[in-house]
């Protein structure tokens, strides 16, 4: 069979109707509008349908291991804090397999933008329960309905020192893109939990479902500097609020590392290492 010449980057291979298309466009727009040159961005991708975006963008990318996208993102930022680092990750990877990284790196306020494609399923592996699946949902791994209560990523982030916490719907592309732009310019750990449609493995939570179940924080006059109000919003059960829950200005991790005050680590020149002082202790 004759193969068509490969187009670079690849054309998206997501299913028709997948929320990832909209999210990718929102990310592209946000980067273009950010005012930073494209080469200053790195996107770290987790393994999942969402992470397959790595093949569809023309930028520096790091497609790591499942659940482990956050640590390399923090490492890249430590190595070169002039870079803008974005994480593209699924709810399975971020809140399940890699939850330790999520919980701990947010405490450090590492300056990374974490975009969680929250479709409430493990989609790449064909539709098992994820940490955000509602209790009682039948999935491939829980045919009689899941027993666990779902994880509440927003409440977790609010109580655990993340400094930029938002939820957006993947269908509202301009709004999502604007929020991603804000997250990118925020100096510190930014989480956007993106409600994403997976029409194949989670057909119930479709466009209509989200219309009925979401409310706008902005319309409700929510004050995003008020942590207690953010907490109340995050704990709501009858509706899923979307918008900016909470934002605080706190120094990012790298700005508190004394060795990085003199510039980016990657530019610390090691061509001559003088160890005279260091070795004195071993005499």
């Amino acid at each position: 069979m004759n193969q068509l010449p490969q187009k670079y980057p690849f054309l998206p291979t997501w299913c028709p109707g997948c929320g990832n298309f909209g999210i990718m466009n929102a990310i592209k727009m946000a980067i273009a509008k950010s005012g930073h040159p494209k080469e200053k961005f790195v996107i770290v991708y987790d393994i999942g349908c969402s992470g397959n975006m790595s093949d569809f963008l023309d930028m520096y990318g790091f497609h790591g291991l499942h659940g482990r996208a956050l640590p390399p993102a923090a490492g890249i930022k430590l190595a070169n804090h002039d870079l803008k680092v974005i994480v593209v990750i699924g709810d399975g990877g971020c809140y399940g397999e890699g939850a330790t990284h999520f919980i701990n790196l947010m405490r450090g306020n590492h300056d990374i933008t974490v975009l969680v494609h929250d479709n409430h399923r493990y989609s790449l592996t064909t539709g098992q329960m994820s940490p955000t699946t509602d209790k009682g949902e039948a999935t491939k791994s829980t045919p009689e309905g899941s027993i666990e209560e779902p994880l509440n990523p927003l409440a977790l982030a609010i109580s655990n020192h993340a400094t930029f916490i938002a939820r957006e719907f993947s269908g509202a592309i301009p709004q999502l893109s604007a929020r991603i732009g804000e997250a990118i310019s925020h100096e510190g750990f930014a989480l956007i939990d993106m409600l994403q449609i997976c029409s194949v493995y989670n057909p119930k939570q479709d466009l209509r479902w989200y219309r009925e179940h979401t409310v706008s924080l902005e319309a409700e006059g929510h004050n995003s500097t008020d942590k207690a109000a953010a907490w109340t919003q995050a704990m709501r059960e009858e509706k899923l609020p979307v918008g900016l829950f909470f934002k605080a200005d706190r120094p990012a991790y790298h700005s508190q590392v004394s060795e990085l005050q003199s510039g980016t680590l990657v530019n610390h020149n090691k061509s001559v290492v003088d160890m005279t002082t260091l070795l004195q202790d071993y005499r």
């Binding site: 790195v42 770290v44 790091f62 790591g64 291991l65 482990r68 956050l70 640590p71 390399p72 993102a73 923090a74 490492g75 890249i76 430590l78 190595a79 070169n80 870079l83 330790t100 990284h101 701990n104 790196l105 680590l265 990657v266």
Partner: peptide, 15 residues
């Protein structure tokens, strides 16, 4: 796991 993946990210970025 965080340790090694963080170091790999940094190394990718030239450190």
């Amino acid at each position: 796991i965080g340790v090694i993946n963080m170091a790999l990210g940094a190394s990718f970025a030239g450190v």
